[in-house]
C-alpha cells in the first residue's frame, strides 16, 4: 500500500510513553487535514496511538506493518470538525447508498477524505478529491450529476456538499454518517 503522509515521525526503538509524546509534539506543527506517519517498533504503540487519538480528537486512520516497523497514520482534526455541525439539507443514510451501489445504479460518489484514508478502503468506483483540494479540482465534476458526497463521519462531506451547492451543483447529497458505518464492498489501493 502506497500512502502519502505530510510528515514522517521516526519513533523507532523508543519505548512507552515516548511514541505518543513525540506524536503530540510533531502534530502541533501540522495543519488540520494533514496526515502524519508515525514509525514505531514498540508493539504496544498500536493500542496507544488509537487511545491517544480517541482522547485528543484526532483521527487514527490505520496501521501498516513493514517488517519490524509499525507505521501508524493519523489525520489532524480541525476544531470545527470536533464540533460536528451538520447543515447541508439533502442527506441520505449510508445503508440507502449501499442499496444503490448493490443495485448497480449509475451514481457518482465523491469521497472527500485524504488520499491516505481513501487508500485504506473506499467504495468501488468512488472519486477521491480531499476537501482541501475541492476548490481547485471542481472542474473534474459534472454539475448535473446526482453526486453522493461521503467522508468518514459526515462533517467534511457536509462542508463539501455546501461548497458544491454554492458553486451551482444541482443534486448534491451528503451521505451520513459516512465510511465509519459502511458495510458494503471496499476497494483498497495496492
Amino acid at each position: 500500500m502506497n500512502i502519502t503522509a505530510n510528515e514522517v515521525l521516526d519513533a523507532k526503538g523508543l519505548s512507552c510513553p515516548m511514541p505518543i509524546v513525540k506524536t503530540k509534539k510533531a502534530i502541533s506543527n501540522l495543519k488540520a487535514g494533514e496526515v502524519i506517519e508515525v514509525q514505531a517498533t514498540d508493539q504496544g504503540s498500536t493500542a496507544d496511538i488509537k487511545a491517544w487519538s480517541e482522547s485528543t480528537g484526532h483521527q487514527y486512520i490505520g496501521t501498516v506493518e513493514d517488517g519490524d516497523v509499525l507505521k501508524h497514520y493519523i489525520r489532524v482534526a480541525s476544531e470545527a470538525e470536533k464540533k460536528d455541525e451538520i447543515k447541508h439539507e439533502t442527506v441520505i443514510d449510508v445503508t440507502e447508498l449501499r442499496a444503490k451501489v448493490d443495485g448497480k445504479e449509475a451514481i457518482s460518489i465523491l469521497d472527500v477524505r485524504e488520499p491516505a484514508e481513501f487508500a485504506f478502503g473506499h467504495i468501488p468506483g468512488a472519486t477521491n478529491i480531499p476537501l482541501g483540494e475541492l476548490q481547485t479540482s471542481i472542474d473534474e465534476l459534472n454539475k448535473q450529476d446526482e453526486l453522493y458526497v461521503i467522508c468518514r463521519t459526515g462533517s467534511r462531506s457536509d462542508l463539501a456538499a455546501q461548497k458544491l451547492t454554492e458553486q451551482g451543483f444541482k443534486h448534491v447529497i451528503n451521505v451520513v454518517p459516512g465510511m465509519t458505518e459502511w458495510e458494503g464492498p471496499l476497494n483498497h489501493d495496492n
Binding site: 512507552c16 510513553p17 509524546v21 491517544w52 482522547s55
Partner: peptide
C-alpha cells in the same frame, strides 16, 4: 512519570 507524560501528551 510515564503516566504523567502520557496523560499530558493526551491533552489532560
Amino acid at each position: 512519570f510515564n503516566l504523567a507524560t502520557a496523560a499530558a501528551a493526551s491533552d489532560a
